[in-house]
Nucleic acid binder design. Structure first.
Lengths: 368, 368
DNA sequence: CATTCTAGTCAGGGCTCTTGCCTAGAAGGG
DNA sequence: CCCTTCTAGGCAAGAGCCCTGACTAGAATG
């Protein structure tokens, strides 16, 4: 998976397994249909010895789906076992997002991804036939009609997710952006295997961890919704129901030193959108009220005492630009903790979901 | 380890390994000195077949130490691989506990445990010789002079512990009961292998988990000091430095709805001992001020939002009796979470440390 | 005293791995 | 131009650990 193309001798040195065993393993894997002789041979130019045969994963080991579901719309990506992006579809949703619209967009995005994958396989098939035909070397792989269905899906949703059912959860006093949709039900008929759903913030934290490996940190996401992911001992910890880090209701320091839930601070400051429960990010960024910084400082302090993170990473549309001020606020507290802005800027949740999808696909291919 | 005494045939059915292989394994284990033929034979009375030979762990696989270090004093226990208590010593410390006194008590307790273990081995040795002599069957095990040194130690300390060094840490605004002692240094010359030190609350949570298996819960310990252990996905999570759950400084709801650190509430209510930073438990239990219940409610609410526990377990000298009132307070909050009193009443921290010591000893014996 | 039952052993064989050596086939130098 | 050198890959033999099935040892029972 890491090298894409290897001879048996290379596999032997790479893995430390002896040559005969590596050769025999490749034979068994080929027989099982997991590995194919690509027909390619080692170039004469490299070294002088005998030419080797390049093997690779069979083209039909399958693909995985990574999907991001947010109020703006749905993004669905299909990756293969090498981590290549095979297809990508963006499906916008009109604002305000109604649950039904989101669910349909999700279904449509995945359907369109499958069409793209099919088209691409068709093209590869034709190309393969052409190539091989020229060299008179049509491998068995070229003859297969491939299955375009992803073997699994990993979904990132911009709302709390029930760990066991995969359904989105409305928590009291928390913004609920997408509504009661059930991604597992929507994808059940569109994916061959598991559908894993989790909160976008948890996936973003996963991406952050991949970018800068850390065992213990907290990822605070400050956008229209408020979220937080907790990574302990190298894993995202989701809690019993899966709603660990749903910080909207955490008691913090409000205006005038009063104790109040974090989300209430925004209400008091008139920073919540009139009709929905979401935060008015544009206005917040204009006004940058110090009360908000103090309140977030309280959240970070609570994380520091309860989780003891190495660092608190701040992301989100208003969290990232305010991270400096928050860091300063926290540095003045009696238990300071390093605070920094998120390092993954581009679609962090999707990146995390994609990495997870790739991991799971590889495990599925390798595992028993 | 679970059965103490088994024949090769029993080992075979118990493990699912075939009889010849089980027999061969026992031969290898005996050769390696891990297992011995006890000389005992299956009683004629049970079944009719041929008599079998009972094998057991070799008597020299070693023991492990579990130690609890608290302001009242030190308790040291020695357990064998079966989980038997081999020796126990209690070493009181005069109050107020001075760091030097605690360190000496720790060393003395461990020394006395070793003396007890040695005495007991001497007795066993004599007994063995007597028994076997009568039956003319002196096994090779009886001849060994055993090593009384524990192979590892697990220490529970009533203060925050640095995860990497094992030293006790003074955190700002938190009670510091034992002082800057370094259990690893004290035990280095008294234990053959690893010395693992952790906070008493974490060990108590471990004991709680053993009593009622739960994957995600928080354990709040309310005594002279304030502590909290966080169990996520079946493991105690210690955080980066190891001070996760040091809640004394957590911002909560103080008198008059003001946001303030938890420990400050006790200061305002005059519930801290004059000279030390510890809480005056007796007075607290007399007065049972509602402000304390509200403040603890804030702590539980913070745990509920950040950790999403299945239940919050409350222990400690004043936490246990107040757990009902706290549960009621929490049930009125917008995010209620089940709250109950701790179920392990008897030396919970030592019980947790003992279980860990046993686990590690067994891993040491089995592992490579 | 033959039968029955259990503990333990023996023989043979399978699977997967190893090492050591051999063959195939290309490149390069005298 | 041929021989040497080098790499890919295959073959043979054997180690290690496991299995199944059949056998032996030795006690209790009727």
């Amino acid at each position: 998976m890491r090298h894409r193309l290897l001879t048996r001798a290379e596999l032997s040195t790479e893995t430390g397994i002896s040559k005969p065993t590596a050769g025999e393993s490749v034979r068994r894997l080929t027989e099982a249909g997991l590995v194919v002789d690509t027909g390619r041979r080692t170039p004469g130019g490299r070294g002088r010895g005998r030419v080797g045969s390049y093997y690779s994963l069979a083209p039909d080991v399958g693909t995985a789906l990574a999907v991001s579901v947010a109020p703006e719309g749905v993004v669905a990506e299909c990756v293969d076992a090498y981590g290549n992006l095979v297809a990508r579809v963006e499906e916008p949703v009109g604002r305000p997002a109604r649950p039904d619209d989101v669910a349909t967009a999700l279904g449509r995005a995945v359907d369109r991804v499958r069409e793209l994958v099919e088209a691409r396989q068709e093209a590869d098939f034709a190309g393969d036939r052409g190539d091989r035909g020229d060299r008179g070397e049509l491998g068995p792989a070229g003859r297969l009609r491939l299955d375009a269905w992803p073997r699994l899906a990993v979904v990132s949703a911009a709302d709390p997710v029930d760990r066991h059912t995969g359904r989105l959860l409305q928590l009291p006093d928390a913004p609920f952006l997408l509504g009661e949709i059930d991604p597992v039900a929507v994808l059940a008929g569109r994916v061959a295997g598991t559908v894993l759903v989790d909160n976008d913030v948890n996936w973003a934290a996963e991406a952050e961890r991949a970018a800068a490996p850390m065992d213990d940190f907290a990822f605070v996401y400050l956008d229209e919704g408020l979220g937080c992911a907790i990574v302990s001992d190298g894993e995202v910890r989701r809690g019993h129901r899966g709603v660990a880090g749903e910080v909207a209701h955490l008691v913090t320091v409000g205006p005038g030193g009063r104790a109040m839930p974090l989300i209430e601070v925004f209400g008091l400051l008139g920073l919540r959108h009139g009709r929905s429960t979401a935060i008015d990010v544009d206005r917040l960024l204009e006004e940058r009220p110090p009360e908000v910084v103090t309140a977030v400082g309280g959240l970070v302090a609570a994380l520091a005492t309860l989780i003891d993170p190495e660092v608190v990473v701040i992301g989100g549309r208003w969290g990232t630009p305010l991270s400096d001020v928050i860091a300063e606020e926290v540095s003045r507290s009696p238990r300071p903790v390093p605070v920094r802005a998120a390092s993954v800027k581009n679609e962090p949740s999707l990146a995390g979901a994609r990495a997870q999808a790739l991991d799971m696909l590889r495990a599925l291919i390798v595992g028993r």
